[in-house]
């Protein structure tokens, strides 16, 4: 059983019929996911990335049995998601960052109690698991607060706990860090790392935040316009597309655009040349070398390095494919 893939998808396709307002019958077909095939093995952590509207959420809804595929095969935890939806619901935990599965008007603790009943946890199991999640996600201070009064970060932690209460073998998170501040993101990532280490949980994650993928997902799937554009390691992805880092420098005095530095591209100039952005390829030069070159032309007051932007990486894949 534990050898069967947690996700197995082949030729998966989903069309939507979009009806303009007022037209009940005539509709246009939109292909959201097209001939998608991939496998996720038990214990893997996979980042599922792509631009807005690429088909990520649609794929996840088919994995969870919410949407019926137009064509193709899906097996999640070895089950057929639509036909075996109820059995599957006991084995997977899903968080949609933009939805809530908690009861708006109830305290967090009460939502957990109801979910424990929904998943048939026995009293001892419920106490142990709730305690573990409350501890790890540091939710003790607001357990008795109604959900509608929580901050976004607090609510997101409660959502994740709610989806993991029944100890699912596969956790699917659709943009779990959307809108969170740096600290909350960090806390959530650390929790997921621990959860995976302790329980061997498989993870599938969609996000627009490269930091999530870097911390959590050794493997990345990139979806472009409903089809699979890349399947491999994150570093492989950066290498394929030549993911660049961006150095932002604040200068003492207005300076001419810093063009002509080796293996570096000048991206933009702000505040009459007081702040400039330079992109460099980490395979060919280093931040230190770029900084040294800049210092010869002007005095650097402050600097920051921007992580490769997921949108940028994805955009480059698309450009390469077309």
């Amino acid at each position: 059983m534990s050898r069967t893939p947690v996700v197995q998808v082949s030729g998966l396709t989903r069309d939507f019929v979009v009806r303009p307002r007022g037209h009940r019958l005539r509709g246009r077909r939109v292909r959201a996911v097209h001939d998608l095939s991939f496998t996720v093995r038990p214990g893997e952590a996979v980042g599922y990335i792509g631009a807005n509207g690429a088909g990520k959420s649609t794929t996840i809804k088919m994995l969870a049995g919410i949407l019926v595929p137009t064509a193709g095969e899906v097996r999640t935890c070895g089950l057929r998601p639509v036909q075996d939806r109820r059995a599957l619901a006991r084995r997977i935990g899903v968080v949609f960052g933009q939805r809530s599965q908690l009861w708006w008007d109830l305290p967090v603790a009460e939502s957990f109690r109801i979910l424990a009943a929904i998943h048939h946890l026995d009293a001892a199991g419920e106490r142990a698991r709730t305690g573990e999640l409350v501890d790890r996600l540091e939710m003790g201070a607001y357990l008795d607060t109604p959900v509608r009064q929580l901050s976004l970060g607090q609510r997101m932690r409660a959502e994740v706990a709610a989806a993991l209460l029944h100890s699912p073998r596969l956790v699917i998170l659709d943009e779990p860090t959307i809108g969170l501040d740096v600290l909350s993101k960090q806390r959530l990532r650390e929790f997921l790392i621990e959860e995976r280490r302790e329980h061997g949980t498989s993870l599938m994650l969609t996000t627009h935040d490269m930091g999530d993928v870097e911390r959590l997902c050794p493997r990345v799937l990139v979806i472009d316009d409903g089809t699979l554009a890349y399947d491999g390691t994150l570093s492989g992805l950066s290498r394929t597309v030549g993911a660049r880092r961006v150095l932002v420098v604040d200068l003492e005095r207005p300076t001419e655009p810093l063009t002509g530095i080796p293996s570096t591209e000048h991206l933009s100039t702000q505040a009459q040349g007081l702040q400039q952005r330079l992109a460099f390829d980490p395979e060919r030069t280093t931040a230190a070398a770029v900084l040294a070159a800049v210092s010869q032309r002007s005095e650097v007051r402050d600097l920051a390095i921007e992580e490769p932007d997921i949108e940028d990486v994805v955009r480059r894949i698309y450009a390469a494919r077309r």
Partner: peptide
Amino acid sequence: AGTLDVFYLRPQP
């Protein structure tokens, strides 16, 4: 409101 999606994620009809 996405409530229906949430119902699909739970092991009851």
